[in-house]
Design a protein around this nucleic acid. Structure first.
Lengths: 330, 330
DNA sequence: TTGTATGCGTTATCAT
DNA sequence: ATGATAACGCATACAA
């Protein structure tokens, strides 16, 4: 049951207590120069009454609510959860609140969150969405993470291309001759696709031609399984190194191969992408390319909040690092 | 950069467009009876302009903001993440927004979130906190999850006692004669403690006296390890069944025992608590007592939002279920 | 410098 | 039943 506690003190109360006018209180609160004696009186009164500004009333005037919406498909995915964790922290450091919107991959839910902005309910949106069709609305303050929407919508992401290259280089340094690249494609072009592009490029730079298989998003992974089935002869896999476009995919792929008693890193080495360690054990799920989550969150927040940043239309691409996780021979 | 998009249409705009007064628009929006012709006109105008209410302005009048704060220690823990996911969804169904507050187990951060309520920035708080010392503030609309704060603060939790009993019964049905109970204690009395209490009770009901070890919160788990060390003789553990107060603890304990080549379920059976499946594989981490997350979220939301519920001071205790997860012989 | 008055978008209380 | 108007808490342009 929502009941009102003792009504919070307002500026009016403070003004009365301090024997000054409303405007003076407002000035003190907002750091506008005011006579020292007045300032002291107001501050004392404010503290005595436990006054704090009502952000909503303020927002009604200023059109700023000091809150931003974070649009995510889900929180169950460790990567999304960790991202939300970082974004919330980053926002909090800047005095902003985070309104969480879970879309469950539903385009309608995504749209809803975007209209919120126009209702002045948030100052901006940080979105990680899979819907291909959000209109690059007018000057909608929005920053996407890891997804390109073309138009002038800025995107912060990890350096996916570099990550792919690093995976390839690492695999080949560790002796792999027959690399395989497994990728779950997104409807939206751009970032995720760069992982495999980087991988392939680095392979070719060493004169090796990798095999690549792409899965349509939201499809089950059985096409991958069929592919693997066809490439197992005499209990041996045709490939000695696999790069997966996510750690989750790597884990599932390795699990599948386990049925054939093909193990990592002995029989095949494998590198994933994301780099979210298992919470309970602190261990990485597999060897992986680690996304710089904290920096990505900060970048997104700064982009959204800092004057002029957004209009630059810049995409920010943060560097990644390799992390051994037991599925490679290093 | 936060810039304003095309100003969102207001009631005034709708009123002008529909050629009616402001009050009439308000009535239509709020479902208050109004002439059919008017209603149609207003609705048409609203749709045409893409009008949506500004919740903040409304909140200024009604003292309701239609948003509640969810206070959580972290999002990295799968249980917290899943809980946040469910709470957000439940809130959304009721037309409420979720403001996420991550405390990182910091008492000061928790306190901050509680003052927000008095500033009218949220209508209530759903909190899962470990700080023992939040004052049962005046009529602060708050519901806790899985933590008791005594006083009149309602708490929704899974039936921890029953869960402990179920674990004990299951273990003994599966042939265990020497049960061990491992628990990470909380500073706050109440719910978590009931897990082991239930376990012990069920053991004794069968005439078996279990061994229990409790760890002080935030302590490292080495005391557990020492204890286990002392109870391994000739490579065999003195116990044949372990109940851990969380899945995470179960996983870590089993990992530790693995060093001694003691394996589950062959050498020792083990049941955890929480029941959050691994996101990537969909598999449970261990045999476990599953908390009814969705129901808990709904219960917390309803308790907070529904008239009169809160004042009843009732604690809600939701039933759990057992789930085999490979660390028991069923 | 300080105080007064107006308006932000909405709801609610009035007359009409 | 409908329309005008005050008020919510705050910021601000303007007057003092």
């Amino acid at each position: 049951m929502i009941k009102k506690g003792a009504a919070a003190p307002t500026m009016k109360d403070v003004a009365r207590e301090a024997n000054v006018s409303l405007g003076t209180v407002s000035k003190v609160i907002n750091g506008i120069p005011v006579g020292e004696a007045y300032r002291a009186r107001v501050e004392a009164a404010a503290k005595k009454l436990g006054y704090t500004v009502n952000h909503y009333a303020r927002g009604l005037k200023t059109n700023r609510t000091y809150s931003v919406a974070l649009v995510l498909p889900s929180l169950r995915h460790p990567f999304f959860a960790a991202l939300a964790d970082e974004v919330t922290a980053s926002l909090s450091r800047r005095g902003y609140r985070c309104i969480l919107m879970i879309t469950n991959f539903d385009a309608e839910a995504e749209r809803k969150s975007f209209v919120m902005v126009r209702q002045n309910k948030v100052d901006g949106v940080i979105a990680l969405t899979y819907s291909p069709n959000i209109e690059p609305d007018e000057s909608l303050p929005i920053v996407t993470i890891d997804r390109h929407f073309g138009a002038g919508i800025p995107c912060v992401s990890s350096d996916n291309y570099l990550g792919g290259q690093m995976a390839a280089d690492r695999l080949m340094s560790l002796g792999c001759k027959k690399p395989l690249c497994l990728q779950i494609g997104a409807e939206i072009p751009g970032e995720p696709h760069k992982r495999s592009a980087g991988f392939e490029s680095a392979c070719r730079a060493r004169g090796i031609t990798p095999t690549s298989v792409v899965l349509q998003e939201k499809q089950t992974e059985t096409p991958f399984h069929h592919f693997l089935d066809e490439h197992i002869h005499n209990g041996k896999l045709d490939f000695d190194g696999i790069f997966c476009s996510s750690d989750g995919l790597a884990v599932r792929t390795l699990n599948y191969l386990k049925r054939y008693h093909i193990r990592a890193p002995e029989d095949v080495q494998c590198i994933g992408y994301d780099g979210i360690a298992d919470f309970h054990t602190g261990e990485y799920l597999c060897s992986t390319i680690v996304q710089p989550l904290a920096q990505m969150a900060d970048a997104a927040v700064n982009l959204l909040l800092d004057e002029g940043e957004l209009s630059s239309g810049a995409n920010i691409c943060l560097t990644v690092r390799y992390q051994s996780g037991g599925t490679t021979k290093d």
